[in-house]
Amino acid sequence: MSKPIIATASLAGCFGCHMSLLDIDERILKLIELVEFNKSPIDDIKTFTKECDIGLIEGGCCNTENIEVLKDFRKNCKILISVGECAIMGGLPAMRNGIPVKECLDEAYLDGLTVGENKEKIMPNDEELPIITDKVYPLHEIVKVDYYLPGCPPKADLLWEAVVALVTGKELDIPYELVKFD
């Protein structure tokens, strides 16, 4: 039987959840025995080359590119998991929610105390750049999400237990200490 395939992505996140996945230490060798990785920053595969069983997504959606990647994951993954606070509730990027986008951009590029020389008052507007959304969205407000792993980041043991439970079909019994929102 072929191994289950995992894909991962970081949207509006800090890559901390991916770091936490690497925090499983030597168990990463066991993980490689258990699963195969497809599209993921971990192996640097940029596009889906086959249908995946599990998609782990960190970060919420703050721009059109995030939404596109998320929808691509939903299309290509049988099970989609929101990993971490940003994916579940927007996280720190969502602190801009409620502030008009123009105000945020003005602060970042024109009026902010740390803005250096910008006499021409240039706002990044290259057509290659994704458009910023009106607010940062949790993943499940855009596509159907099957499971949630909270934490900032989710503890390495939680990620490990969850992935192993999924690929081996064992029931997941999470100890109290493992589920935290920070």
């Binding site: 509730m89 927007g90 949790p138 949630y148 909270p150 900032c152 589920v179 929102f181």
Partner: peptide, 29 residues
């Protein structure tokens, strides 16, 4: 935003979230 809150870990609301294993709220933010 629990990760950015000083009360995190000592917060009763968060404590209840843990007790009832709230993975994600069923209501929109």
């Amino acid at each position: 935003f629990c990760p950015a809150c000083e009360k995190s870990g000592d917060c009763d609301l968060q404590g209840l979230g843990y007790k009832y294993q709230m993975m994600v709220p069923r209501f929109p933010y």
